[in-house]
């Protein structure tokens, strides 16, 4: 049975802040910051946006593109690391916001930035086993960056949703491959407002080791080489890492570039690589072969081999595209950023 993507939807908030604006507030060298991360600007959710609201927006568009009735959905899984409620699911809010039936498997998943892709893998299993017809996998985050700390330069806001099924596929997911280990490169303790990371330690032992492990493992199992793919999309904590990991794996720049969005919206955590995939789906021709490798700190990667079908091009314009949302922007300054992200310590509200 072929399983894969029936529909997809993305959501990027309208507001943006330039990394230069943040650097000026802290007296950092804006050019050096830009050179480190290659992130020009990042998306900022408005004061009333959170991973729940963005998940709803992306999922609605995914349902529209899939052209299926909400009642046909049998599972909804939300991958996030910035839940507004520590206890109380996003997925249950999605059930009512999307008007799904009550008989639906639902859970929120957490594995840093990887959980959204785990939602896809789990739904593939449910579809293959015949337990459900369609499932919704969501990656959504408006994660935290401590003011004045370097995460602030890259942490973005966004969501993406995929309808997974076995009929009317726009792209078949032909293979998956996981790679995970206990590697404490980045974490947020329970009750703590901001994540902590190991700077350089997030690179070689974490990001690069796991992504290369998953990508190589997938290609070895399939007997495929970088040349066999039209696109390669990697998790994007900044714009340097995915380009470098592509080089290490032997992918030319032109195969990586179409799937990079971090330079314009920042790292959207659980949406990151999957938002890159949404952007690629908007331009890919039928029969395109795509490698997607996600990464979550702590640490692990999922690699996917995806091949687009003839149905893909006709679905692109049915809902808001990543391309449109990247253009639809209003710049804000640092003070509005603090207000919108609710970073100013407030007694209430």
């Amino acid at each position: 049975m072929a399983v894969g993507i029936v529909g997809w939807g993305a959501y990027i908030p309208r507001y943006r802040i330039k990394t230069r604006e943040i650097a000026e507030a802290w007296g950092d060298d804006a050019l050096r910051i830009r050179d480190m991360y290659l992130v020009e600007e990042k998306a900022v959710g408005y004061i009333d946006e959170d991973p729940v609201t963005m998940a709803v927006e992306a999922s609605r568009d995914a349902l529209t593109r899939a052209g299926i009735a909400p009642s046909e959905v049998g599972a909804v899984f939300a991958g996030t690391e910035s839940k507004p409620y520590a206890v109380k699911p996003i997925s249950s809010i999605l059930i009512d916001a999307l008007n799904l039936k009550r008989q639906v498997y639902s859970v929120d998943m957490e594995f840093a930035c990887k959980a959204g892709s785990d939602a896809i893998v789990n739904l593939m299993g449910l579809v293959k086993s015949g337990l459900i017809k369609y499932g919704i996998a969501v990656g959504t985050d408006s994660s935290q960056g401590e003011p004045g700390e370097h995460l602030e330069y890259t942490v973005g806001t966004g969501a993406v949703a995929y309808i997974i099924g076995s009929t009317n596929l726009v792209a078949e997911i032909k293979h998956t491959y996981p790679f995970a280990s206990d590697t404490p490169d980045f974490w947020r303790r329970d009750g703590s407002p901001y994540p902590v990371h190991g700077e350089g330690f997030t690179g070689e032992p974490a990001y690069f080791r796991h992504i290369i492990g998953a990508a190589k493992g997938l290609m070895e199992e399939l007997g495929m080489k970088p040349n066999d793919f039209d696109y390669a999309i990697f998790h994007q904590p900044n714009a340097r890492f995915p380009v470098r990991v592509a080089q290490m794996l032997g992918f030319p720049l032109e195969k990586v570039k179409p799937g990079i969005v971090v330079d314009l919206i920042g790292n959207t955590y659980n949406a990151s690589a999957l938002l890159g995939l949404a952007k690629v789906l908007e331009e890919a021709k039928p029969g395109s072969r795509i490698l997607v490798v996600t990464f979550g700190s702590g640490a692990g990667s999922n690699a996917f081999y995806i091949e687009t079908t003839d149905l893909l091009p006709s679905r692109v314009k049915l809902a808001r595209t990543v391309g449109e949302m990247l253009e639809d922007k209003v710049y804000i300054d640092y003070s509005l950023y603090l207000k919108y992200r609710r970073i100013i310590r407030m007694i209430h509200g």
Binding site: Y46, I47, D48, E49, D50, V52, T53, V56, E57, R60, P84, Y85, I93, A97, H348, G349
Partner: peptide, 17 residues
């Protein structure tokens, strides 16, 4: 029509969407 937060009950209570 978009889906948003409306208000919340301090840092601990319900969030209205």
């Amino acid at each position: 029509v978009v889906f948003r937060r409306v208000k919340e009950d301090s840092d601990y209570g319900i969030i209205y969407y």
